[in-house]
Amino acid sequence: MRVLVKRSSAVQEFEVPRHPSQTVLDVVTYIQRKLDPTLAYRYACRVGMCGSCAMTVNGAPRWTCRTHVDRVLKNDELAIAPLRNLPVIRDLVTDMREFFDKWARAQGRFRGGRSKHEDFEKVIPDSPQRKAADAGIECIGCAVCYSACNVVAANPQYLGPAALNRAWTLLKDARSVDAIEKLRAVAGDAGCHACHTHMDCTERCPKHLSPTAAIAGLKRATAKAALKGEL
């Protein structure tokens, strides 16, 4: 197959042999090990857990370690580029700092209210609150949603789907405190109210999460808090 890799300098073309069950990450690794050792890319676990290897594959952001070539190959051709909406460090490696800084800005840090002298908070697995949190907690921080999001492209201040999804799961966590502070952090033009509900994040999330639903939840929660004068 023909593989076009967008590198820092220019697009470079490679010829890579096909194999059964070959992933896009296998292709990039083959290029780096056999054809051009100067190619920079990032990966760690290779099994869809760490969120390191996301790239743009034939125009769409994907986790490359679990994307089979069979599924994405078009006319025996594969175009691989770095993730969109993030600064490129080199070749296929993007700078993820802004992405994770936004998690911090969205109050994505867990903070509990109990000391070690108190009993554990009771978490009821079947409660609607816990189910809402469970629906979003499997995020691996791969930035595929962030790269797919058109609002991030148009509004660089926007916190993005992953950070807002994180804030929503904490808001729904019975053990988490500072709910109003969290809502203040995610309200406004840089937060949940900037979302246009295009659902690019939900369509692309490799873990099949729905950041759109999380953001809609934040919109409802902030609206309620605003009406009560708490925001």
Partner: peptide, 12 residues
């Protein structure tokens, strides 16, 4: 707060 109220006003 203001942007939340604007959002709410737009929805209503």
């Amino acid at each position: 707060m203001t942007q939340t109220v604007l959002w709410l006003a737009q929805r209503i």
